[in-house]
């Protein structure tokens, strides 16, 4: 299903029409939504409450439910236990590289699948989509062995390389390119003598840039939050990603300090929260549009 009208226009249109049939939402609607909102936010609040107190404030009945004064203290303990700055940098590198490659390669492949004609195109596309069903765990043992053969254990490349492409991205970009770029535009470029890559670069990609941006964000989030594979393959502190470092904090020492654990959680989550505040609107729009297209 494609949709060419900008969503904003559509919304105003529907607003006007439905308005005739019933009045605005009642108080019940808001109550429901506010409850949902509180449930969404509460774990973040709790994270901060624990991170700014300490284990003893939490391990008692009744537990502390207000933020305390120890946040910075706990944060500095996080850095004592694990090189969190290095881990965050590693995650930023991994997530940026993975997101950028995946987006670019997905756009390229999506373009080919949507607009170029070549033998086996449809079969290959179905294959790509089918790979989305393959669980990560399926190949993890040999993947580890391959990584070992390549000498990449404890190397960020071990996490980056398998992430350079993604079936979801190809699918996503193909759907958007098929929907947003009319065939006539491609043909016109071709008649002008543009090569297919040039067509891609100067005609197609600019038209789907917003969709590509959303894909970049989603991939970035996914790579930032990836845990299963990095936990297995990244064993040395200088190669830890933020998630592995977080697990490390939890494990470090026999001594459990919830305050420090949670301070670590806050540190790892905060960049994403900020990101969400900055680009959340577009991200939501992108996710919703993608849903309609899929």
């Amino acid at each position: 299903m494609t949709r060419t009208a900008p969503p904003v226009a559509e919304e105003t249109r529907t607003r006007r029409r439905v308005g005739r049939y019933h009045a605005g939402p009642g108080i019940g609607t808001y109550v429901v939504l506010v409850i949902a909102l509180l449930l969404s936010i509460f774990p973040f609040y709790w994270m901060f409450v624990v991170a700014s107190n300490g284990t003893d404030a939490i391990n008692r009945i009744p537990p502390e439910i207000m933020p305390g004064p120890n946040f910075l203290d706990n944060v500095s303990k996080v850095f004592e236990r694990v090189a969190m700055d290095r881990a965050m940098l590693n995650s930023a590198i991994v997530a940026t590289v993975v997101a950028s490659f995946q987006t670019f390669l997905a756009a390229l492949a999506g373009f080919a699948f949507a607009k170029l004609r070549f033998r086996g195109r449809n079969v290959l596309f179905v294959f790509v989509v089918a790979t989305m069903m393959v669980p990560l765990q399926l190949g993890v043992v040999p993947l580890f062995m391959i990584t070992k053969e390549l000498g990449l254990v404890n190397n960020l490349l071990a996490v980056i390389l398998p992430g350079l492409v993604g079936a979801f991205g190809v699918f996503w970009m193909r759907q958007h390119i098929a929907g947003a770029v009319p065939d006539e535009v491609i043909q016109a470029a071709r008649v002008d003598g543009a090569s297919s890559f040039r067509t891609f670069r100067s005609v197609v990609f600019p038209m789907v840039r917003p969709a590509a941006a959303i894909l970049w964000l989603l991939t970035f989030l996914g790579a930032w939050n990836d845990f299963f594979w990095p936990l297995i393959v990244l064993g040395k502190p200088e190669s830890f990603t933020a998630q592995v470092a977080l697990r490390q904090i939890q494990n470090t020492a026999y001594v459990t300090d919830f305050g420090v654990d949670m301070a670590g959680t806050v540190i790892v989550t905060l960049p994403l929260l900020i990101l969400a505040l900055v680009v959340g609107r577009q991200l939501i729009k992108g996710i919703m549009e993608g849903a309609v297209k899929g």
Partner: peptide
Amino acid sequence: ALLTSLMAGEVP
């Protein structure tokens, strides 16, 4: 983790 690293030859 130690066993894994010994297998991979990437050891502490």
